[in-house]
Design a binder for these strands. Structure first.
Lengths: 216, 216
DNA sequence: CCTACCGATCGGTAGG
DNA sequence: CCTACCGATCGGTAGG
């Protein structure tokens, strides 16, 4: 089209090369870590020149930040599902077990585990970024669970004093052990779905042993 | 001295320089990570030549392995104390709370947190080493707790089917949330002792809500 | 044990 | 004329 020039940011070539750089950088940072990933390797994997990488990102730090922030999105989908599941459920135990199972599967997925490894390993180098990821992902999950538990307590369906403590306990009862083992398992063994379900059920049982409203 | 040469391994100069290299390497690996730590920097921090470093360790990987394995010892002290505490206690709840508090303090200590960050961040590069650390530290703690809980169940003081599940739940009820937050907190904020005690007490309460033997 | 040095590669930028 | 992009290379530094 002639006349008024479209903004450079919307040039389809720019959009495409920028996206390819982010995809390549994500793959390499997750696999090799921050220091061992070179800008040359990112450019090569993206199929662009290094100049193009630097046209889109000020420096390596800025590209790393972009990659990590984009990786926080997994938590959002889980939170939306969990909140819906816990809103006035017919069967509370069943709803909690469903949320626990989703949490176990999400938290042990190879992608999420590797994102955690990358950020934890760079927490001293990028403290602000690490804190931001915590707030946007695991922290946001705990907050959402705490809000849901507080609502259930208001409905008289849970008996608890501190929703935050209850949310922490529920989450780490279910996934604490699974996450810890996954983080140290560099061979990336697939978690056994049956074990995930068992841990979800056991965690739910212990949670309800403390917080269920006693039958009156 | 003349005559039969003493084994090089026992030469006090060798012992001393080897120890200085390990100390310097530990400090730098923990602070900067594997890739960003250079052999030159280690030699300089240890006050020896780079040649001396390579006289004691085949390569960077071997030195890293030595440093990480030496860091597994924190768990041993905790395990010995916990096993003693849980052997036929007068007050079970009190004994569990004491173990929980010790676990919370150990797991959130800056040194342990930084060792975890280092190994987790390098789990893909050193999968065997990461698995070895898991087995020797967090895994060994869980095993010790499971054995103690099984003994308490045999004594009729806990009611449980699977000691391993119970041990996982106890440990991560108490420290799961604390460890996760600490790992992502690159600013190294000191954990609040009062919060550690509160989490230990809350975790113990939830654990006993499920596993305490009902008063008959 | 040190100085010196290797093949290679780093993050970032030049000119065209 | 613009934006996007290239081949080539900068000064320094890596593990060994």
């Amino acid at each position: 089209m002639a006349g008024v020039t479209a903004p450079a940011r919307l040039d389809p070539r720019v959009v495409r090369s920028r996206r390819k750089v982010i995809e390549a950088a994500t793959e390499l940072f997750l696999r090799d870590g921050y220091v061992a990933t070179t800008m040359d390797a990112i450019a090569a994997a993206a199929g662009v020149s290094k100049r193009t990488v630097y046209n889109n990102f000020d420096d390596k730090d800025a590209l790393f930040t972009e990659v990590v922030l984009a990786a926080s999105s997994t938590a959002e989908a889980f939170i939306a599902d969990a909140v819906a599941e816990l809103a006035r459920p017919d069967d509370l135990r069943r709803a909690l077990a469903t949320v626990a199972d989703a949490l176990a599967r999400t938290a042990t997925s190879p992608r999420v585990v590797q994102v955690r490894r990358l950020i934890i390993g760079e927490a001293l180098r990028f403290p602000v970024l690490a804190a931001g990821y915590y707030r946007a992902a695991p922290g946001a999950v705990i907050e959402a669970l705490a809000a849901a538990f507080a609502a259930l307590a208001d409905q008289g369906r849970l008996h608890l004093d501190d929703p935050r403590v209850a949310a922490d306990q529920f989450a780490y009862l279910v996934v604490g052990s699974l996450i810890d083992r996954a983080l140290f398992d560099g061979h990336g063994s697939d978690p056994d779905p049956a074990e995930l379900r068992a841990r979800a059920a056991e965690g739910t049982a212990t949670f309800l042993a403390r917080y269920a409203v006693p039958p009156s």
